[in-house]
C-alpha cells in the first residue's frame, strides 16, 4: 500500500497513516496476515519522517491491529470488526429517519454534514474528519 500525507490537514501525519491503515482494513484491501510496507519504503514513497512512520506503527500495535515480528516486518493481526449486521441495519434505519426529519426542517447536505461533524468532534475524539 502507498500512504499519502495531506500536509494542509491539521491531523498529525502519524495519525493520517494510522487512519489509512484502518481505512484499508475497513474497505478490505488490507487483511490479517498482510505485511505493511517497511519504514524505509514509506519514507521513500511518501516523503515522511521515519519517526512518524514508527510512531504510527507503534500506535497501531498498541490498539492490537498489527504486530511487529522480529526481523520480518509489521503484519496485520486483526481485521476491523464491523458491527453485527443486524445492529448496522437498525442504526441505518434510525439514521435515515433522522435525515428525513432534518430535511423537513430545511437542512441541506452541508448543514447535516456540519451537524454530524460537530457532534462527532464533541464526542471525545476532538478531531474533525475531513
Amino acid at each position: 500500500m502507498e500512504f499519502r500525507i495531506d500536509r494542509s490537514s491539521g491531523l498529525p501525519a502519524y495519525l493520517q497513516l494510522v487512519r489509512q491503515v484502518r481505512e484499508g482494513l475497513r474497505l478490505g484491501w488490507l487483511s490479517p496476515g498482510d505485511r505493511l510496507p517497511t519504514v524505509r519504503d514509506v519514507v521513500a514513497s511518501s516523503g515522511v519522517n521515519a519517526n512518524t512512520v514508527l510512531k504510527a506503527y507503534r500506535e497501531l500495535e498498541m490498539t492490537g491491529l498489527v504486530e511487529a515480528r522480529q526481523g520480518s516486518g509489521t503484519f496485520v493481526k486483526a481485521g476491523l470488526g464491523t458491527a453485527d449486521p443486524e445492529v448496522m441495519g437498525r442504526l441505518r434505519t434510525r439514521l435515515a429517519e433522522w435525515v428525513r426529519e432534518a430535511r423537513e426542517a430545511g437542512l441541506d447536505d452541508e448543514d447535516i454534514d456540519a451537524l454530524v461533524r460537530s457532534v462527532l468532534s464533541n464526542d471525545g475524539e476532538g478531531v474533525a474528519v475531513r
Binding site: R7, S8, A13, V43, G47, N49
Partner: peptide
C-alpha cells in the same frame, strides 16, 4: 525524501532552516 531516507538509514540528526512551512508536515518532527 532522499534526506529522510538518509536519516532512516543512518540515524543522523538533522537541523534545517526553512520558510516553506507548509511542506514540513510529516517531514520535521
Amino acid at each position: 525524501a532522499e534526506l529522510l531516507g538518509e536519516v532512516a538509514e543512518t540515524g543522523m540528526t538533522v537541523l534545517l532552516s526553512t520558510h516553506v512551512v507548509a511542506e514540513l508536515g510529516g517531514v520535521a518532527d
